[in-house]
Design a protein around this nucleic acid. Structure first.
Lengths: 224, 224
DNA sequence: TCCGGGCGTTAAGAAACCGTCAGGAACCGG
DNA sequence: CCGGTTCCTGACGGTTTCTTAACGCCCGGA
């Protein structure tokens, strides 16, 4: 479960990450390109895969897509580019989180821990609890201060998708296609309206949200 | 109910699991192969059986099939293989959950708890009581203020589905397909008519229901 | 400093939905 | 054949939910 596969074409980064991660108790395997990464992942079950988007052979999101065809292994994406297109595509393909280069090792380690923690507890999902409210996915109910909170179907759809992927960054397109349907993938307006309503109903300070965080230009993230 | 039977041919795993499970409050019995596992299960009623698929004598799914001929005991499968074929066969044969080796003990314990929790609440609750009426699911009877309430077959079908899932939100489609059949999944009209009748017969204030709550656009919820 | 894009907020009309009622069809036992 | 029960169906007003547009704010880039 502490096995990490690091995929990057830069041997320096590869070496640095290997040393750092090893020093923090992880067992590290490395791969220099997409094809060998896919082979390695097929041969050995890793606890998490750290994947650079800029690979020499295959596009990063393609690697993710092909991995996701048979595996739910958590994927943490590294990206040198600032453009958010790549990030959105990677996350839509099924990545769990991303870190922009240049990144601090502390941040990488923290996100690694978060991703691993989530994958362990992702099995049971009947109850999601936060400081100010509780989501019961089985009963389809949200409680706040002991009282039920009335949610409309759309509000619940958004909340459910976010709550099933705690800490994970969900893109606007994912939310829109999941809740409204594929034809609405461009209607980012709706999201703003309904995220505001969710925050008003669930956050202590809707103007300063602690559980429903916005990632500008990309999507939203739910923090339990 | 805390009795666990662990079936594995590797004595090391057997020993490790025995120690770990015992430390978590379970009473543990062990068996090294399929035949002795079946005998042990026949002799003593276990709360759950942890079964390795790779046994020396009988195939794992065969063990499950033979167990299922007379027992509903929850079965948690361990398997070293990654192929999903085994998984599907084991689950089809009647296994309740599945853990792939190598597995973290935390994960195993979590799944064990989940399996046990499910089997406990699956027991029977022939009697459901509320502030104003009582439902006897076994006798198919509803009593209010000591008097029987006459329910039509359709009304009973709705009430039974709701009462078997107290607090849980049942969607209109679930109700319609369960009570009327899959072809009626769109006839939300029927539901409104019959929910009104149920409320008139069972609620103290039919116009202000306390036990049969509406979730607009989704379905209904029964609160005991 | 100005500009533009993305975000949060609000409000109002449109659309969907709900509870209710009642008439008629279908079914069943006598 | 008849009476009673149950079920189906359409219509109506009131309510909830969805959609849509508009406005102001913040931030980063020119």
């Amino acid at each position: 479960m502490n096995d990490v596969l690091v995929v990057d074409d830069d041997p320096h980064i590869l070496k640095a990450l290997k040393i750092t991660l090893h020093a923090h108790g992880y067992t590290v395997a490395t791969a220099p390109d997409g094809e060998s990464a896919l082979r390695a992942a097929a041969r050995h079950p890793f606890g998490v895969i750290v994947l650079d988007l800029g690979l020499p052979d295959i596009d990063g999101s393609t690697v993710i897509t092909r991995l996701r065809q048979w595996s739910h292994v958590p994927i943490l994406v590294l990206s040198a580019r600032h453009g958010s297109d790549d990030k959105v595509r990677a996350l839509d393909a099924g990545a769990d989180d991303y870190v922009t280069k240049p990144f601090g090792l502390d941040e990488l380690l923290a996100r690694l821990r978060a991703v691993l923690r989530r994958s362990i507890q992702a099995d049971d999902l009947p109850l999601v609890t936060t400081a100010s409210f509780t989501i019961d996915l089985a009963l389809r109910r949200v409680t706040r201060n002991g009282q039920d909170v009335r949610l409309t179907p759309t509000e619940w759809g958004i909340l459910e998708l976010l709550a099933r992927n705690p800490e994970k960054l969900i893109t606007q397109q994912q939310l829109l296609t999941e809740v409204w349907g594929a034809a609405y993938a461009k209607e980012a307006n709706y999201l703003r309206v309904y995220m505001a309503q969710l925050r008003r109903k669930l956050e202590q300070e809707p103007g300063n949200p602690r559980h429903f965080l916005t990632e500008a230009g990309i999507g939203y993230r739910f923090i339990p």
